[in-house]
């Protein structure tokens, strides 16, 4: 497959430029003394973006190294962990979710279970005290846990 990633990117960006332009044209502008208005600048950018993307389509650069299957799985795993971290952040509270996220991330980055758990406990507790007591940031305590107690 020799269709360079840059070609796909170029086509995608032209689509993006069209989207930006259409959205800009649909803006309804109330009367104002501003002769340019909010449309012109995004429209100009869309035209510029489309022109530059055409260059990319016709003169694509070298294809970079793309992740293989194993790496792609790990990438999705990291993203999954971060997403779950975000989802549970306010529900389970900072300490519990951070502990889970740290252990999971450390495992993905090839730490043994023992090291991962130790890092998780130390880092979750340590950062909690640093942030709340040292920097005065208020962190979520977790309303699910508060309900239980």
């Amino acid at each position: 497959m020799k269709l360079a990633a840059d070609r796909w990117l170029g086509v995608f960006l032209i689509g993006l430029a069209a989207f930006v332009a259409v959205q800009a044209l649909r803006l309804e502008v109330p009367f104002s003394y501003d002769p340019v208005g909010p449309k012109a600048f995004p429209l100009g950018l869309a035209i510029l973006l489309a022109a530059l993307s055409l260059v990319l389509v016709f003169k694509p650069g070298a294809n970079g190294h793309w992740p293989d299957r194993a790496l792609a799985v790990k990438l999705l795993a990291v993203l999954g962990v971060l997403l779950v971290y975000a989802l549970l952040f306010t529900r389970l509270g900072f300490v519990a979710t951070s502990l889970l996220a740290i252990v999971a991330l450390a495992r993905i980055f090839a730490a043994s279970w023992g090291k991962a758990l130790l890092t998780g406990v130390l880092m979750a507790m340590g950062s909690y005290f640093l942030f709340t007591h040292g920097l005065g940031i208020s962190l979520p305590n977790g309303y699910w846990l508060e309900g239980l107690i």
Partner: peptide
């Protein structure tokens, strides 16, 4: 090691944006 570094960055990023 990266298995300490990456979780550390993740926590700093989350707290930095959350606050």
């Amino acid at each position: 090691p990266r298995w300490v570094l990456v979780p550390g960055i993740a926590i700093l990023a989350f707290v930095g944006v959350y606050q």
